[in-house]
Computed example of a mutant assay.
Amino acid sequence: MPELPEVEVCRQGIEPHVLNQTVDKVIVRNQQMRWPVSEDIDEVQGEEILAVERRAKYLLLKTVKGTLLLHLGMSGTIRVIDKAFPLKKHDHFDLVITTGKALRLNDPRRFGAILWLKGDVSAHPLLSALGPEPLTDNFPQGYLYEKSRNKSVPIKTFLMNNHIVVGVGNIYANESLFQAGIRPTTPAGKISRKRYDALTLIVKDVLAKAIKQGGTTLKDFTQSDGKPGYFAQELQVYGRGGEDCVVCGSTLKEIKQGGRATVYCSKCQAR
């Protein structure tokens, strides 16, 4: 599943092609995505795209009249192509620009979203309850500690809660907790302020490095230009259950938490 770094790389990739450009038309080939495609989405036609933003894992293309919200779901990709580029299976949506380019959404599982929003998008139910962005000043040291008090849920579950902080998905939660030396099963409320402050800086660093390297290549993710990301080469624990720890040589353990794979080192992450 594309996580925050992958979506941010996508945003950076498409921005130069659509910012301050005018939408020629929209082509919807499949109305049934995670939610039905907005019936009034044709209203974006003729509008100039004034901003290309990201909130959590949502892409927001803003115009005077409204905002086009795109979500990649479990396996979606957005590519910048010539509008006449041959269709592939699962190409469900095109946003055609007057330059002759198009943003094409391909989504085999159709868990993505294509919505046309009016007014203040931050008040929309999909966005209004989200936590702060981890790469901003709204995610300072001390924040996680305060939010975690009296919480008995495992720290990994807590860290992946988008109401606490957005975008720390499964890959980056595994990697951040390993670097912080925190066992993923430790109750969130039992971790000290000092360790949380260190974890906060590590989360920021891990996400920033992943963005710089184009994200993590999973079987379903490529950048907007079709090139793969390279952060997978940096992974120290995720996807390495049963292999040797890169720090101490111990065998990495793999368990399930909330239906997601958790990999950790019982020696380096003793508590």
Rank of each mutant, 00 (worst) to 15 (best):
152 S>H: 13
181 G>H: 09
148 S>R: 09
155 I>W: 00
204 K>V: 09
142 G>W: 09
127 L>S: 12
159 L>N: 03
158 F>G: 09
150 N>R: 14
134 P>H: 08
146 E>H: 13
114 I>E: 01
137 D>K: 14
111 F>A: 00
172 Y>E: 02
116 W>C: 08
181 G>V: 05
131 G>V: 11
165 V>L: 08
189 G>Y: 11
112 G>P: 00
141 Q>P: 02
138 N>S: 15
210 A>R: 03
144 L>M: 07
174 N>E: 07
182 I>G: 05
170 N>R: 11
175 E>Q: 10
169 G>Y: 03
197 D>E: 08
192 S>Q: 04
110 R>A: 14
136 T>H: 10
204 K>R: 13
187 P>F: 06
122 S>R: 11
202 I>D: 08
203 V>Y: 03
185 T>H: 05
188 A>T: 05
144 L>P: 06
179 Q>K: 14
170 N>H: 09
212 K>Q: 14
154 P>Y: 01
146 E>C: 06
127 L>K: 05
127 L>G: 01
212 K>R: 14
132 P>A: 06
130 L>G: 04
137 D>G: 15
186 T>H: 11
131 G>H: 01
113 A>L: 15
205 D>K: 14
150 N>V: 10
117 L>K: 06
207 L>V: 07
154 P>K: 11
115 L>H: 09
147 K>S: 12
112 G>V: 07
199 L>W: 04
159 L>C: 12
154 P>W: 01
159 L>I: 14
143 Y>Q: 03
178 F>Q: 05
126 L>Y: 15
156 K>S: 09
110 R>S: 06
154 P>T: 02
201 L>C: 03
186 T>F: 06
141 Q>A: 12
180 A>P: 08
175 E>N: 08
200 T>K: 11
201 L>K: 12
125 P>A: 05
132 P>M: 08
115 L>E: 14
180 A>H: 07
201 L>M: 00
196 Y>H: 04
159 L>D: 01
151 K>Q: 15
202 I>V: 11
199 L>D: 04
125 P>K: 13
209 K>R: 15
172 Y>N: 08
190 K>N: 13
122 S>T: 14
165 V>M: 10
173 A>F: 06
179 Q>P: 01
144 L>Y: 00
137 D>T: 13
205 D>T: 13
153 V>Y: 11
176 S>G: 06
123 A>W: 02
149 R>Y: 07
131 G>R: 12
169 G>P: 08
123 A>N: 15
153 V>P: 00
200 T>G: 03
113 A>I: 13
176 S>R: 09
165 V>E: 01
163 H>P: 03
169 G>N: 01
174 N>D: 15
113 A>E: 13
184 P>N: 12
186 T>K: 15
211 I>C: 10
148 S>K: 01
121 V>I: 15
193 R>P: 02
192 S>A: 04
150 N>G: 02
131 G>D: 04
155 I>C: 04
116 W>H: 02
143 Y>S: 03
152 S>A: 15
138 N>T: 14
131 G>S: 12
144 L>T: 02
137 D>L: 13
175 E>D: 05
157 T>G: 14
192 S>M: 10
159 L>W: 05
178 F>R: 05
112 G>S: 01
147 K>P: 08
176 S>K: 09
137 D>A: 13
188 A>M: 10
177 L>C: 12
200 T>W: 07
152 S>P: 04
116 W>M: 12
